[in-house]
């Protein structure tokens, strides 16, 4: 039988590569003894998840994931780790005393979840996303989801104010 190149399961291969990134990165996050390495594994994992979004034809979300998670949250975490180098406790064990207890609990959790999602017959609709999802998202945020959109903006201001308030250097008035 001649080799048929159109049979190469490109999408599946990409899926498995991304899974390797996402899950491998996640395992690295929770198992690395070095906090800085954990954070870099987190980036890897987030990158894999961004790849998932591309496969799921949610390109906008993939870019947002890169921008917000990798570009902001991960960098912020790295920044905090670097800022407080002693936070890392380099070389010492990063797990608390209960870690051996949480391992079986989480295993059971995983087994239950996998069992549930694999037994359900999902009502998969064959439909394709309509039109330009970016455009649709824009309409949603200025239409049905206008209120959540505005609330998010308030929430971000609150987080900004609170973040600055909590993390800023000591102010003279406080010493009094």
């Amino acid at each position: 039988m001649p080799f048929d190149p159109s049979q190469i399961p490109i999408v599946q291969i990409v899926f498995f590569v991304m899974t390797a990134c996402a899950i491998g990165g996640a395992i690295g996050v929770v198992s690395s003894p070095n906090l800085f390495h954990s954070a870099l594994y987190l980036v890897l994992s987030l990158f894999g998840v961004a790849g998932y979004y591309v496969l799921l034809s949610a390109g906008f979300l993939a870019v947002v994931q890169l921008m917000v998670y990798v570009g902001a949250i991960a960098i912020l975490i790295l920044f905090a780790i670097m800022f407080a180098r002693r936070l890392m406790g380099q070389g010492e064990n990063q797990n608390n005393q209960q870690w051996w207890l949480s391992l079986p609990i989480v295993m059971i959790l995983f087994a239950v979840l996998v069992g549930v999602v694999n037994t359900v017959s999902w009502p998969v609709s064959g439909a394709e996303p309509t039109g330009d999802t970016v455009m649709e998202l824009g309409h949603a945020f200025l239409g049905s989801y206008l209120i959540p959109f505005e609330v998010v903006s308030i929430l971000l201001s609150v987080a900004l104010i609170g973040g600055i308030f909590l993390a800023r250097e000591k102010v003279e008035a406080e010493e009094a």
Binding site: P148, V151, V152, L155, L166
Partner: peptide
């Protein structure tokens, strides 16, 4: 009445509460 809004406002409440709990930062 919408999961999006429920999650959002619940987190809004939580985040504000975290900040207020740590308000006496000294």
């Amino acid at each position: 009445t919408n999961l999006v809004m429920i999650y959002l406002s619940l987190e809004f409440l939580s985040i504000t509460s975290y900040i207020l709990t740590g308000y006496l930062r000294r």
